[in-house]
Design a protein around this nucleic acid. Structure first.
Lengths: 193, 193
DNA sequence: TTAATTTTCGACCTAGGAGTCTATAAATAT
DNA sequence: ATATTTATAGACTCCTAGGTCGAAAATTAA
């Protein structure tokens, strides 16, 4: 029976491989990244990668799952708060912004490299992604209902915010001033008088 | 001396290859696309591709240049109109939306596959791209100056609009209703009272 | 009609990279 | 101390895909 310490060590090694992979994926792109380079970057032999993961694809899947799960778990407590939709929405976006900004490399990668694996049976991260989207959409709908948000197609609003989020917090190289993104979002969502 | 008709035929063949390539690039992604598949899709033998283009990368470069050039040339006449920044901006965005919606496959590809070639000396499409961005940014700055736009960092606004544009006109699978995007943009740009 | 040029393509070459092999080292259990 | 299990890695295999070869077909010029 394997000790807790041994399991923890094993997980640390897997994480080291994932982080090394991410650094090279991000620099070169997935396809231009070789297992040799991943091995070198993470400090293991190439065969060792296959000891912990079944394939290059498997490494990618683990990175995606790790990132989306962490994002979801980071905002989960905000989801259950019993407050108005606008406040809740801003709270979640604020929290997401924080998590994403803390690990821009991971989340930049997550948001721009989704089509590498197209097989729906091999996309375990989708469940967290879909939960997140569903929750945000639900809050937007309630916000429009209660006239706390501008009266636009909620589906469209969702996409618009996704576009803003991505372009300003992920792709943007310069750090935003405090609340800049949030202020823009608030103005954008402001109902018409 | 080659006749005009022969030159035109040659260009038509090159275009056929580019369109075939784009279809497969879009479906499979650049790296998963083989020259064999491009050949099959465009109705030529593989060696024929190399008769017209120097390499797979060359095909990609031609697609990028073709698309960005067309976009730039499509809005060029609006740039020189002697009207207010807000009107001009909306006019350009409207025109861009039209061009992009008419060839979603091409522009979807253009906006999501920029890092395939990183060598700055091999990115001829950048000149059109940069012209376009510079013009839009200049108009935004004038719009803020004249209080026709919300008073935010123009660089940020630029990025935000890029995010909206991408997410709503490119990534969005459902067609927008007439003016939906434009209305949202107007709302977004609305100065605070 | 013949020669020259342009266009075409399947077979082939070669380099590169995912994944495996097999032996060894390190860690743990007896 | 020995046996077992876990972890390690460079050499190697095998396959794929970019790109070329060399010949033939089609078109054009003389």
């Amino acid at each position: 029976m394997i000790s807790k310490r041994k399991v923890e060590e094993r997980n640390q090694r897997k994480l080291a491989i994932l982080e090394g992979s991410l650094r090279v994926f991000n620099e070169l792109g997935i396809e231009k990244t070789t297992m040799d380079e991943i091995a070198h970057e993470s400090g293991f032999g190439k065969a060792t990668l296959y000891y912990y993961f079944t394939s290059k694809d498997d490494v990618f899947v683990h990175i995606m799952e790790y990132g989306w799960k962490r994002l979801w778990e980071g905002i989960e407590s905000r989801v259950v708060e019993n407050i108005g939709p606008r406040k809740k929405f801003i709270g979640i976006i604020r929290k997401m912004g924080k998590i994403v900004t803390e690990d821009k490399i991971l989340y930049g990668f997550l948001f721009t490299a989704p089509n590498y694996i197209n097989d729906p049976n091999k996309q375990p991260w989708k469940i967290y992604q879909e939960r997140l989207y569903a929750i945000l959409q639900s809050i937007i709908e309630k916000g429009i209902e209660k006239k706390e948000f501008v009266d636009l197609n909620p589906n469209l609003l969702m996409k618009a915010i996704g576009g803003l989020f991505h372009q300003l917090l992920i792709s943007n190289e310069e750090d935003l001033k405090d609340n800049e993104f949030e202020d823009m979002l608030k103005n954008f969502l402001r109902p018409k008088k």
